[in-house]
Simulated scan of single mutants.
Amino acid sequence: MKTAVLALSASLFAQGAYSWGAMGHATVGYIAQNYLDGAGKIFTSHLLGGASLASVASWADSYRYTDAGKFSASLHYIDAHDEVPHKCSVKLDRDCGEEGCIVTAIANYTDRALNDNLTLSERTDAVKFIIHFLGDITQPLHTENLDVGGNEISVFWGNGTAKTNLHAAWDRSIPETLAGGSDDATAAKFAKGIIADLDTGIYKDLKEDWTSCGSIKRGTGCPKAWAQDANKLVCSDVLPDGPDAVEGKDLSGDYYTKAAPIARQQLAKGGYRLGLWLNKIAKAEQLKCRD
Rank of each mutant, 00 (worst) to 15 (best):
G193I: 01
A245P: 06
V103M: 13
N151C: 13
A263L: 06
D291F: 15
L166T: 04
N231C: 11
V155H: 02
S182V: 05
S74H: 11
G50W: 07
R273H: 08
L134H: 10
D229I: 04
S252E: 07
K70W: 12
A259P: 06
G219F: 11
D291C: 11
D61P: 05
D250F: 01
L53H: 00
H81Y: 15
G150H: 01
V5R: 05
H86F: 15
N115T: 04
L206P: 02
C96E: 10
N115G: 08
V5A: 15
K280I: 03
R172N: 10
G275A: 00
R64F: 07
N34D: 14
F71R: 14
A39H: 07
A282V: 08
G149T: 06
D125I: 04
L141P: 06
D254G: 08
E285Q: 14
W170K: 01
Y65W: 04
T161A: 13
A185C: 08
T44N: 02
R290N: 15
A227P: 08
E176G: 04
L198T: 00
D95F: 05
Q33W: 01
R273F: 07
N34V: 03
G38V: 10
G69M: 01
Q265T: 06
L178S: 08
S89H: 11
S182M: 02
A188C: 07
E98Y: 09
A80D: 00
T138R: 03
D171Q: 09
S173W: 14
G271A: 08
S58K: 08
D147C: 12
L92F: 02
L166E: 01
K204V: 03
V28D: 02
K163N: 13
D147F: 06
L12P: 06
T138D: 05
L239I: 07
K224W: 05
L141K: 01
Q286S: 13
L92V: 14
F133A: 02
G271M: 09
K249N: 07
Y77H: 13
V28H: 01
K288L: 13
A282K: 12
A284N: 05
L274Q: 03
T110V: 08
G38K: 14
H81A: 13
S121E: 15
A57M: 10
K224H: 11
G69H: 01
N151T: 12
G181R: 09
I137E: 09
W20Y: 13
P175W: 00
